[in-house]
């Protein structure tokens, strides 16, 4: 195997892993910290893409548009938490049903506003040659951003007051209440933060994917798989399972076909859950 081919494969693998991290970190925060299964995660992601589209069309610089879009989805998340989710804590099935209803509404609302046709933003940056191969520079951005997002989550949960209280509330809910941590406020922020991350994922994918109202469905399955395989640890779980699943998908896809890649990913996920029923980070408990 030539060196250039190897580098190219490595970049391709890292890109796949990074995309998994990006699409699942928001879900992991909401699931890991609050135990809420957010079936509207894909639609939060889709909103991020559409907000980016609008920002870009309004003349914003593409990178600025992405940041604004992510924050915009955060606001949506905040509203959703206040109006809906806060009444449903501890009712797993009810939350799933309500977020499913929400996703129906969001998709159709976007159809009514933007129309059903596929939209898109040109991929920024160009390509770089590596020997015989050329590689999209935007893929490098995705890899860097995936690392940066993991870093952001780490910093938020260890270096901010909100983060420490949020972790305390997750690990020892009664104790946290006893020392006066307001679970309501904490949950609200956690949900909004998860929404910001989901929005960021949509914003980042907007230039490489088709921006369609139904686009969330294409990602949500893999995001759930990553989070479940990862287990309750937001950082350790997401990073390790994205690496594992991404590597399996990428290696098998490159060696055979995309279909077998997807199939291999699902098989590995199921086998792994059989061995580690609570996910990779399940043994280490609810830590970051």
């Amino acid at each position: 195997m030539q060196l250039d081919e190897l580098i190219n494969l490595a970049i391709s693998l890292l890109t796949t892993v990074s995309i998994l991290v990006i699409i699942s970190i928001g879900l992991a925060v909401i699931f890991g910290m609050m135990g809420v299964i957010n079936l509207a995660h894909g639609e939060f992601l889709m909103l991020g893409a559409f907000f980016t589209l609008s920002g870009h069309r309004a003349g914003l610089n593409i990178w600025v548009a992405m940041v604004v879009a992510a924050l915009g989805v955060g606001v949506v998340g905040l509203v959703v938490e206040r109006l809906l989710i806060q009444f449903l804590y501890g009712r797993l099935a009810a939350t799933m049903l309500a977020t499913w209803g929400l996703s129906l509404i969001l998709v159709q609302a976007v159809v009514l506003i933007y129309g059903p046709a596929t939209q898109g933003i040109p991929t920024p940056l160009g390509s770089t040659r590596v020997g015989d191969y050329s590689v999209s520079q935007y893929n490098m951005v995705l890899i860097a951003v995936a690392v940066a997002l993991l870093g952001l989550v780490y910093v938020v949960f260890t270096r901010t007051r909100y983060g420490t209280t949020a972790r305390a509330a997750t690990q020892l809910p009664t104790m946290a209440a006893a020392v006066g941590i307001n679970a309501k406020v904490t949950n609200m922020f956690t949900f909004a933060f998860g929404a910001v991350l989901a929005g960021a994922a949509g914003a980042l994918l907007a230039p490489v994917a088709g921006v369609v109202p139904g686009m969330g469905q294409a990602y949500v399955g893999r995001a759930f798989m990553t989070v479940v395989v990862g287990g309750p640890g937001v950082l350790t779980g997401t990073a390790s399972s994205a690496t594992l699943l991404g590597t399996v998908d990428s290696v098998v896809s490159n060696a055979t076909t995309s279909f077998l890649g997807v199939a291999a990913l699902l098989v590995v996920a199921i086998v792994l859950l059989r061995v580690l029923p609570t996910g990779i980070s399940g043994r280490t408990g609810r830590q970051l």
């Binding site: 391709s12 191969y133 990602y219 990428s250 896809s253 076909t257 995309s258 279909f259």
Partner: peptide, 20 residues
């Protein structure tokens, strides 16, 4: 000939095979 699942939107491996 390569077949891509309908829900797939990551074409990294396809781009690689094309270059090869």
């Amino acid at each position: 000939s390569e077949f891509i699942p309908l829900e797939s939107s990551d074409f990294g491996s396809v781009i690689n095979s094309l270059q090869a």
